[in-house]
């Protein structure tokens, strides 16, 4: 296994100098395709060789179908956007409507409370006035007692 890795490293060095044959390059490709555990410093080469393999299989029709897929997802996103905008518009309008109702309700309550307090105050004030009239008698009593004391 160690020997194999050493050979691969040698092949990579040859590869970078453009000295490998097509067979040797194929060997590198199948090595990276079939191996799971790869030394960390060779991982970049795995990505490169496996990527080459993938890039060589794309053709005209495949490409157009890929484009279609992305287009579809794009249109889906457009619908998402529209849906999100609708939701925002709905929630804000509902909120505004509710708060409007709330304010009229509050207003009504406040008016009722005002009317009640006004009525209470009127009643209280009339009671107070009634009582002040009766205070005159206290003054009379005072003067009469003063008479007798003198």
């Amino acid at each position: 296994m160690k020997l194999e890795i050493t050979r691969i490293r040698l092949l990579i060095a040859k590869y970078e100098n453009a000295e490998t044959s097509l067979e040797e390059e194929q060997e590198l490709y199948s090595f990276f395709k079939n191996r799971e555990a790869i030394p960390e410093d060779l991982e970049v080469y795995q990505h490169i060789f496996l990527g080459f393999g993938q890039l060589g299989h794309q053709d005209l029709n495949q490409e157009s179908s890929q484009v279609e897929v992305t287009d579809k997802s794009n249109s889906k996103y457009v619908w998402y956007k529209i849906a999100a905008a609708l939701i925002i518009a709905l929630t804000t309008s509902v909120f505004i409507f509710n708060s409007n109702q709330l304010s009229t309700q509050e207003e009504r309550e406040a008016r009722e409370a005002l009317a009640q307090t006004v009525a209470i105050l009127n009643a209280v004030s009339s009671e107070i006035n009634q009582n002040t009239e009766k205070l005159k008698y206290i003054n009379q009593l005072k003067s009469s007692t003063n008479k007798y004391l003198k």
Partner: peptide, 15 residues
Amino acid sequence: IDQVIETQDQVQKLN
């Protein structure tokens, strides 16, 4: 969109 799939991402990176 492809970032979910790691291998696809690596091919894209290479590309």
